[in-house]
Amino acid sequence: MSAIGFYVAAVLVVVSCAAAVLLRGPRQSAVAVAAVAVSIGVFLVVAGEYLLALLEVVLLLATLGVVLEMARRGGFGRRGRPVSLGRWPYGLGLAVLAVVVLDGAALAGGGGWHLSGIKTALSSVLHHEAPVTTGLLVVVGVAAVLVALVIGRTSPDEAEQHERRRARQEREERMRRRRQDRAAARRLRDTARTGGGQ
């Protein structure tokens, strides 16, 4: 892995990950997640894992597309406004702890890495050495799609219940507005009567 390629990819990965976590609007967040998928794809290409890069980018962008379609259909609702970052001191503490533990261990390891120097293509490994793992991964992917469909579907009675709730909220809103209008009119009448009396 070339040093220049690695450091360029590393900067892209860190910046895109930070943007995905820190940006709060759903649209900006989605763009940042797409950037994360592409930047990790760039890292994998730099590492020489072309098939893995292709699979990673295709899988993550397809998943993002499904999530965005779900949001467009109202799955996350129009009222889904950005919620402010809370508990950031705890998050910062946990992040610092993770960096200290993980990177501290890596730095403490120093040059003690065992280098095997053997490199095998992913397609070959998947086909000849890990066929069961490949099958399991396909099963996990298919099961996730099925479970997501079962959980996320809207049954007819649920849709009807939603419609009823929405109609009730609109009715209550209309009544509230009418009450406010009546109260305002009463105040005006009272003011006019008091003014006429003087």
């Binding site: 930070a18 820190l22 705890y90 998050g91 946990l94 992040a95 610092v96 960096v99």
Partner: peptide, 14 residues
């Protein structure tokens, strides 16, 4: 490790 830390930060703060 840095990417893991960024994810952990987001998990706690968002």
């Amino acid at each position: 490790g840095i990417v893991f830390a960024i994810g952990a930060f987001g998990l706690v703060t968002r």
